[in-house]
Simulated assay, not measured.
Amino acid sequence: MNDVVPEPSPEVPVEPDHDPAAPAPLQVPRTPTGNAEVDAGLERLGDADHLATDGHIEVYEDVHRGLRDALTALDVRPGPPAPSPSYDQRAPSPSYGTRS
């Protein structure tokens, strides 16, 4: 009987076609809102797709700041005039059925 053990073949390291740690687009659809400032912020989020994870915070903070500014600007813009106080003044209801 022959007790020859075959020698293990040298393993060739297999390099992955794609590096899972590399930045990759999330492919999240961004639907336009019709508000230019908000839409610009949504587009800015796409910049995070090409950055390593540690670079995302800068993009997110920038977008958050822009959205906060857009919301603050809504409070500053003049809206329609408020109705005059005499518009909805109603006479007090008579107290029917009340005992004195």
Rank of each mutant, 00 (worst) to 15 (best):
D17W: 05
H18W: 04
D19P: 04
D19R: 10
D19E: 12
P20K: 12
A21G: 09
A22S: 14
P23W: 04
P23V: 13
P23A: 07
A24L: 06
A24C: 09
P25E: 03
P25T: 09
L26P: 01
L26N: 12
V28G: 01
P29Q: 12
P29K: 10
P29M: 04
P29N: 07
P29V: 12
R30E: 03
R30V: 15
R30D: 01
T31L: 15
P32F: 00
P32C: 09
P32R: 14
P32G: 10
T33G: 05
T33L: 09
G34P: 03
G34I: 06
N35R: 12
N35E: 08
A36G: 06
A36V: 13
E37I: 13
E37T: 15
E37W: 00
E37R: 15
E37A: 15
V38W: 00
D39N: 08
D39S: 06
D39R: 10
D39H: 08
A40E: 08
A40P: 03
G41Q: 02
L42V: 10
L42A: 04
L42P: 03
E43Y: 02
E43K: 15
E43V: 15
R44D: 03
L45E: 02
L45Q: 02
L45R: 06
G46M: 09
G46I: 02
D47G: 03
A48Y: 02
A48K: 02
D49H: 03
H50C: 02
H50G: 08
L51N: 10
A52M: 10
D54P: 01
G55W: 02
G55I: 11
G55N: 06
I57P: 01
I57T: 14
I57Y: 00
I57W: 00
E58S: 11
E58L: 11
Y60Q: 06
Y60D: 07
Y60N: 08
E61Q: 15
E61G: 11
E61A: 06
D62Q: 15
V63M: 08
V63Y: 02
V63I: 13
H64C: 13
H64Q: 12
R65V: 04
R65F: 00
G66I: 02
G66C: 02
R68N: 09
R68D: 05
D69C: 00
D69K: 14
A70P: 06
A70F: 03
A70R: 03
A70T: 13
L71F: 07
T72I: 12
A73Y: 01
A73M: 07
A73K: 14
L74Q: 10
L74H: 01
D75Q: 13
D75N: 13
D75P: 00
D75R: 15
V76H: 09
R77V: 15
R77S: 11
R77Q: 14
P78T: 12
P78N: 04
P78D: 04
P78K: 09
P78C: 01
P78H: 05
P80C: 00
P80D: 11
P81V: 06
P81Y: 01
A82G: 11
P83H: 07
S84T: 14
